[in-house]
C-alpha cells in the first residue's frame, strides 16, 4: 500500500482514542459550527451586508477593534517589561507576583468586570481622583481598554517569559565583550530574539480582547454607537430573536478570528525556524 493513513506504531489504542476524539469534536464543535454556516447560507448577500454595515454595527466594529488594538499594544509593552523583571531579576515576592500574573485566567471575567467597575467608577478608589483630573474612565472607551488590559496581560507575559529565560547569555557576553553598550546589547541582540514571541503574545492578546465580553460589559456602559462592543451587539440581536443579524455579525467576527489564528501559527513557524 503506497498511501499510509498512519505511521506504523506498536502502541495500542489508536482507533479507540482517535474515534472518541473525532466523535466528541464532531458533536461539540463541528455540529454547532455547521449550524452557524447553515444560518449564514440562508441569508441573501444584501441581507448579510446590511446587517454588518449598519451604522450601529460599524461603530461597534470600530470600537471593538480600536480598543482591542490599543489594549494589546499596552499589554505588549508592559508584558515585555514584566516578563523581563520576572525572568532576569530577583526581588522579594517575585514568585508570588509570578503566580499572580495568571489571575486573569483564573478569575471569572464577570467578576473582574464588576471589580474594575468598582475601582474606576466616578466614586471608586481610582475613579474619583481621575474624575477630579477630568478623566472619565468607567462607561467610556478608556474603561473598555482597561478591562482588556487586564484580560490580555497574561498572554504576552507567558509567551515572552520562557523565551527571555532561555536566551543564551553567552551571546550577550559576546556582544558586551566586543564593546557594545547595554542598550545596544538589548536592542540589537536580545530584542530581535524576543520579537517573534512578542508578536505572538500581541496577536493572542488582541484576539482575546476582540472576543472579550464579561469583563467589558460592566465597565463599558453599553451605550449604542458609543460604548457598545460587537459581542454585546450580538447579544442584543439574540435577545430580540434576530438570529440572522446575530449570525452575520458572528460570522464576520469569526472570519477575523480565524485570520488571526492563522497569523499566530505562521508567526510561530517563523520564530521556530529563526531560532534554530
Amino acid at each position: 500500500m503506497k498511501y499510509q493513513f498512519k505511521q506504523y506504531n506498536i502502541l495500542p489504542g489508536f482507533g479507540l482514542t482517535l474515534g472518541y476524539t473525532v466523535v466528541y469534536l464532531g458533536l461539540l464543535v463541528l455540529l454547532p459550527l455547521a449550524a452557524l454556516t447553515l444560518s449564514a447560507l440562508q441569508m441573501t448577500w444584501p441581507e448579510f451586508w446590511s446587517a454588518i454595515s449598519s451604522q450601529r454595527a460599524i461603530r461597534s466594529f470600530a470600537l471593538t477593534f480600536g480598543t482591542s488594538f490599543i489594549a494589546a499594544v499596552i499589554n505588549t509593552i508592559f508584558g515585555l517589561l514584566i516578563a523581563w523583571c520576572l525572568s532576569r531579576m530577583s526581588f522579594p515576592g517575585r514568585k508570588i507576583i509570578d503566580a499572580m500574573i495568571d489571575l486573569p485566567f483564573a478569575l471569572p471575567t464577570a467578576i473582574s468586570g464588576i471589580a474594575l467597575t468598582a475601582v474606576y467608577a466616578p466614586n471608586g478608589i481610582l475613579g474619583e481622583p481621575l474624575a477630579r483630573l477630568g478623566i472619565k474612565v468607567a462607561y467610556t472607551p478608556i474603561g473598555i481598554i482597561i478591562a482588556m488590559i487586564l484580560v490580555g496581560l497574561p498572554f504576552v507575559v507567558r509567551t515572552v517569559q520562557p523565551v527571555l529565560a532561555e536566551l543564551e547569555r553567552e551571546l550577550e557576553e559576546a556582544a558586551l565583550g566586543l564593546g557594545a553598550s547595554n542598550w545596544q546589547t538589548f536592542s540589537k541582540v536580545i530584542f530581535p530574539l524576543v520579537l517573534p514571541s512578542l508578536l505572538t503574545g500581541f496577536t493572542l492578546a488582541f484576539a482575546r480582547n476582540l472576543g472579550e465580553y464579561g469583563s467589558v460589559v460592566f465597565i463599558a456602559g453599553n451605550m449604542p454607537m458609543k460604548t457598545e462592543i460587537t459581542s454585546l451587539l450580538i447579544v442584543t440581536h439574540l435577545e430580540q430573536y434576530d438570529y440572522a443579524g446575530a449570525t452575520a455579525l458572528a460570522s464576520a467576527m469569526l472570519i477575523i478570528s480565524f485570520v488571526l489564528l492563522l497569523t499566530i501559527n505562521l508567526l510561530q513557524t517563523w520564530s521556530g525556524r529563526r531560532l534554530k
Partner: peptide
C-alpha cells in the same frame, strides 16, 4: 479563538 458570546450563540442556533 471564538468569542464566548459566539460559542453560546452556536448552541442557540442549534
Amino acid at each position: 479563538a471564538v468569542s464566548p458570546i459566539i460559542a453560546g450563540m452556536l448552541f442557540v442556533l442549534l
